[in-house]
């Protein structure tokens, strides 16, 4: 048996297990199904708690609906590039924006804007911006402006129109 074949076999077996853990796919035969499901719940709540920490204002603005919304979204959208809560929360925010369900809270918009001037999501994952970056965002009652200065400081401004 070549090492390549062994790696391929292992890759397939591990992928089947990870799909069961991260996406609720059927538990592969031979495993203790209840224990795999208990682990899946641990993974999901860990992922949710990470996002709660990285995106506290968005989470606060969603209130009690955050948990169920995030968990439903997370099962459909496993972490693919990196286990990063900042990136995970940003993708969740994207899903809310696309569905027109991003909370109207200025605080949550400000958090998103701060992320936007500091990072960008690329096909390789989260990348920290360098140099000077400006971004603006309209909320119901105001326009929010943010600038990332060279060196990393972020300045914010709220225009009441």
């Amino acid at each position: 048996m070549s090492a390549r074949t062994a790696r391929e076999r292992l890759a397939e077996a591990q992928a089947t297990l990870v799909r069961a853990l991260a996406q609720g796919a059927p538990v592969p035969p031979g495993f203790d199904s209840a224990r795999v499901q208990a682990t899946a719940e641990t993974l999901l709540s860990k992922r949710r708690r990470w996002v709660e920490r990285s995106w506290p204002r968005l989470v606060a603005a969603l209130g009690e609906s955050f948990r169920s919304r995030f968990e439903a979204w997370a099962r459909e959208n496993p972490m693919e590039l990196e286990a990063s809560a900042l990136a995970d929360g940003r993708r969740f925010a994207d899903a809310l924006l696309a569905a027109g369900e991003f909370p109207s809270s200025e605080s949550a918009h400000e958090e998103l804007l701060t992320f936007e001037v500091r990072f960008r999501l690329t096909e390789h994952g989260l990348v920290a911006r360098r140099g000077l970056t400006f971004k603006s965002m309209r909320t119901g009652a105001a326009t929010l402006l943010a600038a990332r200065l060279p060196g990393g400081r972020v300045l914010r401004l709220r225009l009441p129109f």
């Binding site: 090492a3 062994a6 790696r7 076999r9 292992l10 890759a11 077996a13 591990q14 992928a15 089947t16 297990l17 990870v18 799909r19 853990l21 991260a22 996406q23 682990t39 641990t42 993974l43 860990k46 992922r47 990470w50 496993p78 972490m79 693919e80 590039l81 990196e82 286990a83």
Partner: peptide
């Protein structure tokens, strides 16, 4: 595995093939 990050430490199979890899 399979392009998915589990964000967790998952056990390896305790057999020769997994041990060799």
């Amino acid at each position: 595995a399979g392009g998915i990050e589990s964000g967790h430490l998952l056990p390896v199979a305790r057999g020769d093939e997994a041990l060799d890899l």
